[in-house]
């Protein structure tokens, strides 16, 4: 108790039930958990396809434009939530259109995207400087915050998240086909091009969601790391998808709890937990291949002996 008083903040008591009860007695923490859960599920599910389709560059572009979108919305006196969604979805449509003209993944597209990626965050920085309001600098937009998530914000997140997941469930199988094997999928009548555009738009919405929890710079913590970890672990699409969602949820919940008890940024904790999981799986995998490589000749010798 003494420690808690001197630290002037909540203290971890190792009694999980009372800890969680105490944490959830604050409405802002309940909202943070609700929002985090929605975002983790949506990001991880979308992330599975991002990693499979190798579209991390597109996802990164969407997350960098999210920042000026939010800053611009705040400057105009609108909620940042709408700024995120409008700009991310618009950017997704533009990327899809440019990709269409460039014949898909050309060097042109990469150079153009890189150029825009430099310019738009600079605009965002200007918007924040112009605003001079309560925002207190670009930090919370860039690196995320869990303070002050309103119930209406959670409702918006839930609505958009449910729509994204429903759309993903509908197009999931053809999208997997088109991602793994576009030529044969096209031969089978799968609308590869339309699916690619739809996926980018969904990705825009998912990025806008994730930006609100992890900040625009740390979107990959929930979008790419859990999916990459899952794909390193398993080659089954269903299991991989479920594992990615589970890992994202674990990183988010652990991150939120840690950030509640420790006065350091949420984005750092969420990213660190996700990264630790990735590191663990990666090293486990390396160990496994190393063991099977060194053990195989031994077994062979035994067999021939």
């Amino acid at each position: 108790m003494l420690l808690a008083e001197t630290a002037a903040g909540p203290a971890w008591s190792w009694n999980l039930i009372t800890d969680v009860q105490e944490m959830w007695s604050f409405p802002f923490m309940v909202n943070a958990f609700r929002a985090g859960t929605i975002v983790a599920v949506v990001s991880a599910a979308m992330g599975y396809f991002v990693v499979l389709r190798r579209q991390t560059f597109a996802a990164h572009t969407l997350s960098t434009v999210a920042f000026p979108g939010a800053a611009g919305a705040v400057l105009l006196g609108i909620s940042a939530v709408y700024g995120y969604f409008t700009v991310c979805v618009a950017a997704a449509v533009v990327i899809a259109a440019v990709g269409w003209r460039g014949g898909g993944g050309g060097a042109d597209e990469a150079a153009l995207t890189g150029t825009v990626q430099a310019f738009l965050p600079a605009c965002g920085f200007l918007f924040i400087a112009l605003y001079k309001g309560l925002l207190g600098g670009p930090q919370s937009l860039l690196f995320g915050t869990f303070l002050g998530i309103t119930t209406s914000q959670v409702t918006v997140l839930l609505g958009v998240g449910a729509a994204v997941l429903a759309a993903l469930a509908l197009i999931g199988r053809p999208l997997l086909f088109a991602s793994v094997d576009p030529q044969v999928a096209a031969g089978r009548g799968v609308p590869v091009r339309a699916l690619s555009v739809t996926f980018l738009v969904l990705l825009g919405a998912a990025t806008a969601e994730a930006s609100q929890i992890t900040g625009t710079l740390l979107v990959f913590a929930l979008m790419v790391i859990p999916a990459a970890t899952a794909q390193t672990t398993t080659g089954r699409p269903g299991t991989g998808l479920a594992l990615a969602v589970f890992l994202a949820l674990a990183a988010t919940w652990l991150g939120l709890t840690t950030a509640y008890y420790w006065p350091y940024p949420l984005g750092f904790f969420v990213t660190s937990y996700a990264f630790a999981g990735y590191l663990l799986v990666r090293s486990g995998r390396t160990l496994h291949t190393w063991l099977s490589r060194t053990r195989a000749p031994l077994l062979y010798k035994e067999a021939t002996a």
Binding site: L52, A169, L170, I171, G172, R173, P174, L176, F177, V180, D181, V184, A185, R188, G189, V190, Q231, T232, T234, G235, R236, P237, G240
Partner: peptide
């Protein structure tokens, strides 16, 4: 990172909508 059997399976029902 996707199994061969899943790639074969996509040939069977990969063009169907829904999960």
């Amino acid at each position: 990172r996707i199994r061969g059997v899943d790639v074969v399976r996509l040939g069977l029902d990969g063009d169907r909508w829904g999960i």
